[in-house]
């Protein structure tokens, strides 16, 4: 058992990097992606429209407001551009180029956050305990989402679906541990796909509401924004920066560092704590609250 865990761990770390490297290389090294000028001009137009509209604040009640940032317009409009029939110059090929390019552009985003971290390095050391321990806060998902997933009729899929926020590194860990065609892998694929489509928009709204409702420390929101992928980090940072404009550099520093921890330390927490905890909770709860399997009728392959 012990050996199994150690070897899994090695494989998954290798996989994590291969995912990024392969996707980027395949999409942008073979072809000449800059020649897809229709794609880049479309992005430029989307950005100009979004920046001209600017952020919109919607008051839900006296104390709760949701801010919609230009970053959400460009993302949603980008998706609409792909899906809209009349826009013939954005097709599957352009989506693949965009995805490969995005893997490279993550670097620019990370570099900007790293510069803020370097500038505020004394703060990072000072806040070390909070930064490290908030990674353990991610485990809350198991306690809340796992019972609900069981009540909804998921079986072994719950272990893949609820062990973590399910971005690329965690997908690699689960696929590596349970195999590509296992129900656990099917679970995290479902989480990955749904998270890709709704995750960024949802975390942006969630942050807006949390920032105006919960009396937490601004740095706590900054650290929490780093829980998921780079785009989720970015989408969550928008409303946080808008709520605490005086703390811009510090918030960027903590967000960047927390996202870095999610990618590095986070996968070890998933391997050594989250997945064993999921297994344990599953074996306790499944006989009590498990339902009939729904996976067939629900379209899971």
């Amino acid at each position: 058992m012990g050996e199994g865990i150690i070897s899994n761990n090695d494989d998954s770390t290798t996989d994590v990097q291969h995912i990024y490297r392969n996707k980027t290389d395949k999409r942008i090294l073979k072809k000449n992606p800059w020649k897809d000028y229709g794609l880049h001009i479309s992005v430029l137009v989307l950005v100009i429209i979004a920046e001209l509209i600017g952020p919109i604040e919607i008051n839900l009640s006296k104390s709760v407001s949701v801010s919609i940032m230009p970053l959400l317009y460009t993302m949603v409009l980008g998706l609409i551009f792909y899906l809209a029939k009349p826009i013939t110059w954005i097709q599957r090929k352009q989506a693949r180029v965009a995805e490969g390019a995005m893997m490279l552009f993550i670097g620019v985003l990370i570099a900007k956050l790293a510069v803020s971290s370097g500038q505020s390095i004394h703060l990072i050391f000072q806040m070390g305990p909070a930064l490290m321990l908030q990674e353990l806060g991610h485990l809350a998902t198991i306690l809340i989402a796992l019972p609900v997933a069981l009540l909804l009729g998921f079986k072994r899929e719950t272990i893949g679906m609820t062990n973590s926020i399910g971005r690329e590194p965690e997908v690699a860990v689960v696929v590596d541990k349970y195999g590509f065609n296992s129900p656990e892998a099917r679970g995290i694929f479902a989480l990955f796909i749904v998270g890709t489509i709704i995750g960024t928009v949802f975390i942006s709204f969630l942050t807006s509401i949390s920032v105006s409702l919960l009396p937490l420390h601004p740095f706590a929101f900054a650290m929490a924004s780093g829980v998921g992928s780079a785009s989720m980090n970015a989408a969550s940072l928008g409303p946080t920066l808008a709520a605490f404009p005086a703390l811009e550099t510090q918030i960027e520093a903590f967000a960047g560092f927390s996202n870095l921890l999610s990618f590095s330390v986070g996968i070890y927490i998933v391997i050594f704590i989250a997945i064993p905890l999921c297994e344990k909770l599953y074996s306790i709860l499944e006989p009590k609250i498990g339902r009939d399997a729904i996976i067939d009728e629900d379209g899971g392959e």
């Binding site: 794609l39 479309s42 992005v43 989307l46 950005v47 979004a50 920046e51 940032m69 230009p70 970053l71 959400l72 460009t74 993302m75 949603v76 409009l77 980008g78 998706l79 551009f81 792909y82 899906l83 954005i90 599957r92 352009q94 989506a95 693949r96 965009a98 995805e99 390019a101 995005m102 552009f105 993550i106 620019v108 985003l109 900007k112 956050l113 803020s116 890709t196 489509i197 960024t200 780079a230 785009s231 970015a234 989408a235 940072l237 928008g238 920066l241 960027e252």
Partner: peptide, 18 residues
């Protein structure tokens, strides 16, 4: 940061259409 993110997410939006 938000200027970088706005452009980045435009590519993400097109990419996730797949």
């Amino acid at each position: 940061l938000l200027s970088i993110v706005t452009v980045f997410l435009a590519y993400v939006g097109i990419g996730m259409g797949k």
